[in-house]
């Protein structure tokens, strides 16, 4: 039997997922890892769509690409401030262009 289009597509996305997951683990800097995790969430959502699971894809999109990376970024932000007790000495570059 020859695989149909869906299955070929699924296999391609699966391999991408495997690669991104590996990169996510090997990215040792947590801030960068959060970005890779968001990409992983995105590719997983794509995979789930291909596998005909739109419900799951939708939640993976919300959780994997938005909430988990956001929580990680917030954690890192608190931790970085903890590392530099002198608040005025650290200017954090916030994504929204905050002006402290």
């Amino acid at each position: 039997m020859n695989p149909d289009v869906t299955e070929v597509l699924a296999l391609v996305v699966l391999l991408v997922v495997a690669v991104v997951a590996t990169v996510a683990v090997l990215t040792r800097d947590p801030a960068r890892q959060a970005v890779v995790l968001a990409v992983l969430g995105l590719t997983l959502a794509l995979l789930f769509t291909v596998l005909q699971a739109p419900d799951v894809a939708l939640s993976q999109l919300g959780v994997g690409t938005a909430i988990t990376p956001l929580l990680i970024m917030l954690t890192l932000r608190r931790i970085r401030r903890g590392d530099a007790p002198d608040e005025t000495g650290t200017k954090e570059s916030a994504p929204e262009g905050e002006d402290r």
């Binding site: 739109p54 419900d55 894809a57 939708l58 939640s59 919300g62 959780v63 938005a66 909430i67 929204e96 905050e98």
Partner: peptide
């Protein structure tokens, strides 16, 4: 249709946080 309490709930929660982007 695809979606439901969980997915919609996440969207609702994220929506509120647009206020953070929009203002502070």
């Amino acid at each position: 249709s695809p979606g439901g309490g969980f997915q919609g709930g996440v969207v609702l929660a994220s929506a509120l946080h647009l206020a953070y982007v929009a203002a502070d």
